[in-house]
Design a binder for these strands. Structure first.
Length: 233
DNA sequence: GCGACAG
DNA sequence: ATCTTGTCGC
C-alpha cells in the first residue's frame, strides 16, 4: 500500500517531542471508525539484542485477517536497525520505520490497524497507535499489555469477559481497561486515529474470542519473531 | 529530589 | 522488548 513517508526524522529526543506535539492535532479520536471492517491488521516488532539502545536489529510484521473469520489473508515483514534508544513516551520512533516498511509491502489496505502499544493513553496523548494512524491515514487502535500513564479502579473491574473500566489521566478518559477473557488480566485499549473508544473496544473484544490478546497481535507477534530468527540473524 | 516508565 | 526452569492448574 501507498504511504507518504515524512522526509524528516528526529535526530534526537528534542526533535521527537516536537514532532509528537505537531502531529497530535491531526489525530481524530471521535471516529466513528469502521463499523463492519472486512480486513483488520495486527502489527508487532521483535528485537534482537537487549532492545534498549540504538542500532538494534528489529523485525516488524503485519498480518491482515478477515475480520469475520479471523483467518489470515495476507502478511508482510521487514527488518531494520533502530535509530532511537528506548525512551518511554518516544517508543514509536523505534518501531515506526520497520512497521511502515512492512505495511508498504501489503497489497491489501486494512480497514483497521491494531497496534501493540498505546494510542491516546500516552503522556502527551500521542502514542504509537496515533502516530501510525496519522501517517497512514488508516483507522488505528492501541492495545497494550501493561498500563503506561493514567489510573483506574481495579475493584470496579468485573471478572467476566467484556468487563471494563475507564482509564483516567489528568482528569480525562484516555482509554479503557478491558477484560477480554474471564479471570484473566485485562488489556489497555485506547484510540489511535479515526475511531472512537467504544468502537475500538468492540473490535478488540471480537478479535479475542479465545485468548487474552487479539488474534491480530498474536499472529503478528509470532511472525516477527520468526522473521527475526531467520531473516535477521 | 525520587521513583515510574508502552515495547 | 529479551534473558530463562520449573511449576501450578485446567
Amino acid at each position: 500500500m501507498q504511504i507518504d513517508v515524512p522526509h524528516e526524522w528526529p535526530a534526537g529526543e528534542a526533535q521527537a517531542l516536537e514532532i509528537q506535539d505537531r502531529l497530535r492535532a491531526r489525530a481524530d479520536h471521535r471516529g466513528p471508525g469502521p463499523r463492519e471492517p472486512r480486513f483488520v491488521a495486527g502489527l508487532d516488532v521483535a528485537y534482537a539484542g537487549d532492545g534498549n539502545g540504538k542500532g538494534d536489529r528489529v523485525a516488524a510484521a503485519v498480518v491482515v485477517l478477515d475480520a469475520r473469520t479471523l483467518a489470515p489473508v495476507e502478511q508482510a515483514t521487514a527488518v531494520a536497525e533502530t535509530s532511537f534508544p528506548y525512551i518511554p513516551g518516544l517508543f514509536a520512533f523505534r518501531e515506526l520505520p520497520a512497521l511502515v516498511e512492512a505495511l508498504r509491502k501489503l497489497s491489501t489496505v486494512p480497514d483497521l490497524l491494531v497496534c501493540d502499544g498505546h494510542g491516546l493513553a500516552h503522556t502527551r496523548r500521542f502514542g504509537l497507535a496515533c502516530h501510525l494512524g496519522v501517517i497512514t491515514g488508516i483507522p488505528t487502535a492501541g492495545v497494550a499489555k501493561t498500563p503506561f500513564t493514567g489510573s483506574y479502579d481495579p475493584a470496579a473491574l468485573g471478572p467476566e469477559r467484556g468487563a471494563s473500566v475507564p482509564l483516567d489521566d489528568g482528569g480525562e478518559t484516555v482509554g479503557r481497561v478491558l477484560r477480554t477473557q474471564r479471570g484473566v488480566k485485562p488489556v489497555y485499549v485506547s484510540t489511535g486515529h479515526r475511531i472512537d473508544l467504544d468502537t475500538a473496544c468492540r473490535h478488540v473484544l471480537a478479535l479475542a474470542p479465545e485468548y487474552r490478546l487479539p488474534q491480530t497481535t498474536r499472529l503478528a507477534d509470532r511472525l516477527c519473531r520468526d522473521a527475526l530468527a531467520s531473516g535477521g540473524a
